[in-house]
Amino acid sequence: MKYDSIFDVIGHIMVGPSSSHTAGACRIAYVTYQLLGDTPTQAEIILHGSFSETYKGHGTDKAIVAGLLGFKPDDERIRKAFFFAEENGMKFRIIRSDLGGDFHPNSVLLRIKKENKKIELIGSSIGGGNIIIKEIDGYEAGFNADLPTLIIVHKDLPGIISKITSVIAKHKINIDSMKLTKNTRKREALTWIEVNSIISEELSSEIEQLENVKLVRVLNV
């Protein structure tokens, strides 16, 4: 972990007891909620490593349920997340599992859905409330969710990236970083683009309407 700002060390306001097991866990779930774009009605929470060993005492389960409901890590309601899940009609299952040796000990696989919308995401909580999103819908990812991020699934064809970036440029938005991973079997790719300002619905739907773009997900932080 590289600390660029003093607020990376002293700025995370959160519900305790553990920045990695509570706040980080909540953030991973909150990102998943945002990428679905709605409060899920069903959620499978698959805990890995230290998350699976010690989740009860750290409130990791409550923090994840809260995040899936759209609560942020400093929300006092995290303590009563199970109550709010019932109130919001979200059914959830907590499963202790092993995702394999390559994942950080504090990792979780989240499978959530509402009607025909669904997402599957693996995230790791790497300390101090900082996270990495490792996988989305089976594609390898690798962003921290500290900046607004566009996640685009598209056909793996030449010229498509330049079409996407020109739409972003048209909206006068500055790209901070960009990366792409491929699924060669499906001939599709996942591109994630971190930007420096809020992503509007207009921008995301313009990208969605581009030829060969399959799906656009938006994370506004």
Partner: peptide, 21 residues
């Protein structure tokens, strides 16, 4: 203690050590 009981704190540098600063 408040942190351990899921109270709102500032991690500094972590939640577990948030009482010191």
């Amino acid at each position: 203690e408040y942190n351990s009981g899921m109270g709102v704190i500032v991690a500094c540098p972590t939640a577990g050590s948030s009482g010191v600063f």
